[in-house]
Design a protein around this nucleic acid. Structure first.
Lengths: 153, 153
DNA sequence: CAGAATCCGTGAAGATACTG
DNA sequence: CAGTATCTTCACGGATTCTG
């Protein structure tokens, strides 16, 4: 659904760069019961399912990563993710915003300006990004080794 | 493609629970150039793109998480992920195996038995899972707070 | 500059039935 | 038990067009 019409729901539409009311918009991840994870039979939702739903997308990690460097404007993000079209970027941004990961600040200037930044919850995602980067590097190293050792049947 | 016919390609088909040749099967993530990430203009592939491609799926994280607890048989995994059909699980497993994350050991016993476990590379993913869990928990906490504070518009 | 609306292609995931 | 094969669906993401 995140692709359809949302029509300016949250308070970020008023036109002032406030910084609160990031969360609690009602749009939360569809937290299933972890599909039977044994780690927490108390009935609590599974963090992994939660994370999976957020990271499911093709760009979520990338967007969050770029935003982790600091606030960015719409087209700045586009520049960093050339393969991402405006429509998709908007969807991703709205999705992340709806989940309290990203904050949207509108500056009512003459040239319209909108800045995206990580919320507190989004900031808390940084360690994940950090580990992901570390793992990715390891993966790439392994790949190098595999290439160097390629053809040894 | 990971959904189509693979017809026993890797060496894990021979019938003995060996433990090498996990990697280097040739099937590696399509490492793009990070879509213009400024963090590494040297031309190296982006770890985030790599990770994103692996985590793209709907179940990858869950499967890896369960496997992180220790080796599991096919139906053990199915039991832990009831919503996952056999076909999809097979695809996921093959996908992860092809990327060197998961090892498949076939025990040529009378009741057919196959065990899945994390490879060394898969083990190296554990920190990511750990951080994901930590973040997920934080997200859920935030959600609780938001619910408790709901309606304050 | 920033975003909305719409249509469309792809492919991952699900259901079902069959195999060894 | 541990898959495999096929069909179908549908959400994701892309291209295009239009607005303020």
């Amino acid at each position: 659904m995140r692709d359809g019409k949302v029509a300016g729901s949250s308070a970020a539409d008023v036109g002032e760069p406030q910084g609160e009311s990031d969360f609690g918009a009602g749009a939360v991840l569809g937290l299933e019961r972890c599909a039977g994870v044994e780690a927490d039979p108390s009935g609590a939702p599974c963090p992994f399912v939660t994370a999976q739903q957020l990271l499911q997308g093709k760009w979520s990690i990338l967007v969050l990563h770029h935003l982790a460097d600091g606030p960015l404007r719409f087209n700045q993000l586009r520049r960093r993710l050339p393969q991402l079209t405006a429509a998709t970027l908007t969807s991703q941004l709205r999705y992340l915003e709806g989940h309290g990961m990203v904050r949207r600040q509108i500056f009512p200037e003459v040239p319209p300006r909108v800045e995206y930044s990580l919320t507190d919850l989004g900031e808390s995602f940084k360690p994940v990004l950090d580990q992901i980067q570390a793992w990715g590097a390891r993966y790439l190293e392994r790949r190098q080794s595999a290439e160097a050792d390629d053809g040894r049947g």
